[in-house]
Amino acid sequence: MMGLLILLALTAPYICRYDPMAQDLYATLKKPMTEGHLLGTDQLGRDILSRILYAARTDLSVMAAAEVFPFFAGTFIGMAAGYFGGRADAVISLITDTFIAFPYYLLVIVVAFMTGAGIHGIIVTFMIVGWLVYARVAKALAASFRNTEWVEAAKLLGYSDLRIIAFEIFPNVLPQVVVVLMTDMAALLVSIVTLGYLGIGISPPTPDWGSMISEGQSLINTAPYLSLIPGFMVVYTGIALSLIGDGLADRWRR
């Protein structure tokens, strides 16, 4: 499901016959399934299929870019805190608790004002706060492993702490943090779209599902498909992500 979406997003430039930003004022508000425009056109005559797929490119790549760093950093910091325990754990807990108490959207808006609206604001903000959930989950798990016999056996073999964290503990933490990753990506996608909708996220004319929904909103009675199609895409992606999470979790349960 997700694979199909990513494939479509990646190949968008090859399958789309129209430039997603090209306006055609003679062909505005065409209904879906009309000749030449599978999903119709919007009020400026832009091809919706092209826009949807290009928006997928933008939204999915912002989502990925904003997740990669927090995922690895958070997981690693959390594992280290859980494994070493004591003071390292206390410091990390203090930081995560402080940050988690802070309203996320407020931070996004502050950063958006500092960096200007757009893709960078979202990515920067998420790098600041995104690692926290991973750190929490990884810390709890690593702490539960630190006194198990297989970790002690690894210490007795003389493996370094870094090696134990990266090669003994990490494989045991991975399934859970990946499930978190999927949930978190879905949440992040919703916030990217929400910000686009509010006009402080990815800014027009770059296609983004959020701005497409809000642009379509004024015509919701005459041309509901303008908002419904991008809305459907958000739901579709969210479901796909959570299915991936569940599937991986099942596979890794041993």
């Binding site: 198990t148 016999e149 297989w150 002690e152 056996a153 007795l156 073999l157 003994e168 494989p171 045991n172």
Partner: peptide, 16 residues
């Protein structure tokens, strides 16, 4: 100096 532990269930890393 090596060791064999009491609990067989948690003596081996389950992922390897």
């Amino acid at each position: 100096i090596q060791m064999v532990f009491q609990n067989p269930e948690s003596s081996l890393n389950p992922k390897y």
